[in-house]
Design a binder for these strands. Structure first.
Length: 569
RNA sequence: GCUGUCGUAGCUCAGUGGUAGAGCAGUGGUUUUGUAAACCAUUGGCCGUCAGUUCAAAUCUGACCGACAGCUCCA
């Protein structure tokens, strides 16, 4: 980025930030001069501000009008530096408890960060001599790191628009009060705004929920919220994904198993899930102390299979894969099309290995990941994250450190973009998470490679080593697609429904030019199917035998995004 | 779960207190020889559900169900 561009970028940030103060002033004038304020940072495409007050989107027009008025008034922005104690006193007097809390944090910790990862919470840095900066936009005087424009008149020409309202917990903590957040879009000029809105509209056209309905791939019904129904076309795709997956994994020494969908609660007590996660499980209470849970993950049953007989070191790595259906009672507000569901299947595998095998086995899994994401042309969209030891970890630090080091080295080796999610590992081991982005740019975790030192211990798993001693295996939990549902959602948006022929729900659609040649079209269909079959491929070929004009058949085939359309006659 | 928005025919949507509409799809006919929507007729709705206000509710109010955007969560 050139300096010039950098400068204008910074400028836009400053102006967005100033607009945010203008919005607060507008709200104070219109609704409540004493409204309690949370944080209000600049974000991509605009800014937001948290208020301890209810709003509705119907308030937007009034606020926007008032903001325009304030800009027109050309109010001078004043900056002063005061001591932290003075600032605390200032806000205490006004009852601005959130500001007081932030200031007290600055005073004691020198920053408003909640922890090392979060940066967005910073509203003000500690300045020299223990002073903080206060900016006044007319009657609105607020703690702020700045910088700002010199007067609101400088914002003339900015294009802004209040976008939406959302609840947001104070400091991002569910235990705190939920404040009301107003998100706003802001750009230097009308054209930029229009370009952004246009792009957002375009992105909506790729939405897998929309395309899934139009192309009849899947559906939902309120009888089971968050549980997709796979329709014939979607199921054909899903089967194709699984066929490829099974072929590739069989080649690489994976053995597929399937286990019960419901298990007695004892199983989850042993695995450790019952205490922590039973609220997210579907429970089947059969009375008489017979309580079952629908499995939310496959690992406990994989442990049962490994432990079902004495194992030898010669069996390792033992790769037990399965694609059983899982159920998790996700919070209702979390459900989102295929991206976040309550019923799904993972392309799961539990690889039982010795501690010495960790690096090689993870490298092998990463090569599978490389193959799979490459096949779909997704490699540029992928980002890998190393998630390290959380505070509430189990096991011994030495194993953790060694494993984290090895995973980190493997990430360096790989040609994927990668990053770090500090302290984000599972309680039982570190992991590498694979993220893909959707049409709106949101990142979703798809694949994951997790090391597990803990569950083999909980299930008292062991194998007989070369020297006859008993050793505990390490388990790698790994998925490549992630959940098939989520991956399908990503694929639909990535290709905007125009899939590569091999996964497309219908690969060839044959259009007879008129009703007289329908039988001929069916012959062609048979020929294609037979010739594909001879090559060991199951082709998906349809004949459009409706009594329609050719034009309308062509149009319909195009709308269904069928890769190959044959017109015969 | 929380905040906001939304829910009318299979789909996309109009309809702001006074007899439920359009286009497409579907159905029946007539068409259909060449690359992005043939023509005519016609079926179809307890306006998400349940309560309430009113002479009168798709329309106003409340609760619930569901969807979306965000927050939190994601073993």
């Amino acid at each position: 980025m050139s300096n010039e561009k950098n400068k204008s970028q910074n400028n836009l940030e400053i102006r967005r930030h100033s607009l945010e103060h203008v919005m607060v002033l507008a709200v104070r004038r219109l609704f409540d001069d004493k409204v309690l304020l949370g944080v209000g940072p600049v974000i991509e495409n605009g800014f937001y501000q948290d208020f301890d007050r209810q709003f509705s989107e119907s308030d937007f027009v009034r606020i926007e009008e008032e903001m325009k008025k304030i800009i027109k008034e050309d109010i001078k922005v004043e900056l002063e530096y005061i001591s932290i104690d003075e600032a605390i006193e200032f806000f205490e007097e006004k009852g601005q408890k959130y500001k007081v809390e932030l200031l007290k944090d600055i005073k004691s910790k020198g920053s408003t960060k909640m922890n090392q990862e979060s940066e967005s919470e910073v509203v003000s840095g500690l300045l020299n001599e223990g002073k903080v900066s206060m900016y006044s936009f007319g009657a609105h005087k607020d703690l702020c790191r700045g910088p700002h424009v010199d007067s609101t008149g400088e914002l003339v020409g900015m294009s802004f628009k209040l976008d939406r309202i959302a609840g947001a917990y104070w400091r991002g903590d569910e235990k705190n009060k939920m404040l009301t957040r107003i998100y706003a879009l802001a750009f230097e000029a009308e054209d930029d705004m229009e370009l952004f809105l246009e792009r957002r509209e375009q992105a909506k056209l790729r939405d897998h929920k929309k395309l899934g309905k139009e192309m009849e791939l899947f559906m939902f019904h309120e009888t089971s919220p968050g549980a997709p129904y796979w329709l014939p076309r979607g199921m054909a795709m899903l089967n194709e994904l699984m066929r490829y997956w099974r072929d590739e994994h069989a080649k690489r020494g994976y053995d597929e198993v399937s286990s019960p969908l419901i298990n007695k609660s004892d199983l989850y007590k042993t695995s450790g899930h019952w205490d922590h996660y039973k609220d997210s499980m579907f429970i089947a209470d059969m009375g008489e102390n017979e309580v079952y849970g629908l499995k939310p993950m496959n690992c406990p049953n994989a442990m049962i299979i490994f432990g079902s007989r004495l194992r030898s070191y010669k069996e390792l790595p033992l790769r037990l894969s399965d694609v059983d259906r899982l159920h998790r009672y996700e919070q209702s507000g979390e459900l989102n099309g295929l991206f976040r569901v309550r019923a799904f299947a993972q392309d799961d595998s539990h690889n039982f290995i010795s501690e010495e095998m960790i690096k090689d086995e993870v490298r092998e899994v990463l090569s599978i990941v490389d193959d799979f994401y490459g096949v779909f042309g997704l490699k540029d969209n992928v980002k890998l994250y190393l998630a390290t030891r959380p505070d509430d970890f189990m096991g011994d630090v030495k194993s953790w450190d060694k494993a984290e080091k090895e995973l980190s080295e493997l990430l360096e080796e790989s040609d994927f973009k990668h990053g770090l999610k500090d302290k984000d590992g599972a309680f039982y081991g570190p992991k590498i998470d694979i993220y893909l982005s959707d049409s709106l740019g949101r990142e979703w975790q798809c694949g994951t490679i997790q090391l597990d030192f803990q569950q083999p211990k909980n299930f008292k798993l062991e194998y007989v080593d070369k020297d006859g001693s008993r050793r505990q295996p390490v388990v790698i939990h790994r998925v490549v697609y992630g959940s098939l549902e989520r991956f399908m959602g990503i694929l639909i948006e990535h290709f905007a429904g125009s899939f590569p022929a091999w996964v497309a729900p219908v690969q060839v659609r044959i259009l007879p030019i008129n009703d007289d040649v329908v039988n001929y079209a069916k012959d062609v269909q048979t020929q294609i199917l037979n010739s594909a079959f001879a090559q060991g491929i199951t082709a998906r070929v349809e004949v459009d035998d409706r009594s329609e004009t050719l034009q309308s058949k062509i149009r319909d085939a195009a709308e269904l995004k069928v890769p190959y359309t044959l017109i015969v006659g």
